[in-house]
Every structure is written in structure tokens, then in C-alpha cells.
């Protein structure tokens, strides 16, 4: 019984840590901050579009401007400015530099 409880607690803790580790999304990134793309989690269609813009795991990304209501942002990637909605930015996970 105790072992089971312990196991459950450990799993929950583990999950928690995982969530935290996966936490930072591009959409949470503040203006003028730089980051590295860690993972892209979205459907293939959007992913394809991301790839063609060079939005891919390992790429460097810089948040140039976020609109007043946090709807849309402009990111700078490989010297190209790309406008992207927050809904789409939420599907990109990043690591701060």
C-alpha cells in the first residue's frame, strides 16, 4: 500500500518536473528576448510551414515585437522577420539563452 502510494507520488512529481521543464513556450517569451527552439508540437501542415521558414529545433529565435494585446508577435529568425499569432507561438517550445 505505502509502496503504491509512494510510486504514485513519485510519478506525479516526475510529471510535474516534466511540465516545468517543457514549460517555456515562444508565446511566453518577452519582447527583445532570445531563445533556442527546443521542440515544435503541432500538426504536420503547420510544421511544414514552420520548417520552410527555418523554424526548426535548434534554431535561434529573437522576439522583435509583441502586439499591444498579445495577439501577434514578430520574430526574427535567420535575419528574416516573421509575423506569427500567439496561438501558433504556443506550439513552439523554447529554451532561453
Amino acid at each position: 500500500m505505502t509502496i503504491l502510494a509512494l510510486l504514485i507520488i513519485i510519478t506525479i512529481l516526475n510529471m510535474n518536473i516534466k511540465i516545468k521543464r517543457n514549460g517555456l513556450k515562444l508565446s511566453n517569451l518577452k519582447e527583445k528576448k532570445e531563445a533556442i527552439i527546443k521542440e515544435i508540437k503541432c500538426n504536420d501542415e503547420l510544421k511544414q510551414r514552420f520548417y520552410s521558414f527555418g523554424i526548426i529545433k535548434g534554431a535561434n529565435i529573437f522576439v522583435k515585437e509583441v502586439s499591444l494585446r498579445n495577439n501577434t508577435m514578430v520574430i526574427d529568425i535567420e535575419n528574416t522577420e516573421i509575423a506569427i499569432r500567439v496561438e501558433e507561438a504556443e506550439q513552439i517550445e523554447v529554451d532561453k539563452i
Binding site: L46, R49, F53, T80, I82, A83, I84
Partner: peptide, 9 residues
């Protein structure tokens, strides 16, 4: 549904 908005400037 909304269409994703990702546009090059």
C-alpha cells in the same frame, strides 16, 4: 476553425 497565421515580412 482559424487558419494559422505565419507570414514572412
Amino acid at each position: 476553425e482559424d487558419e494559422p497565421f505565419v507570414m514572412e515580412m
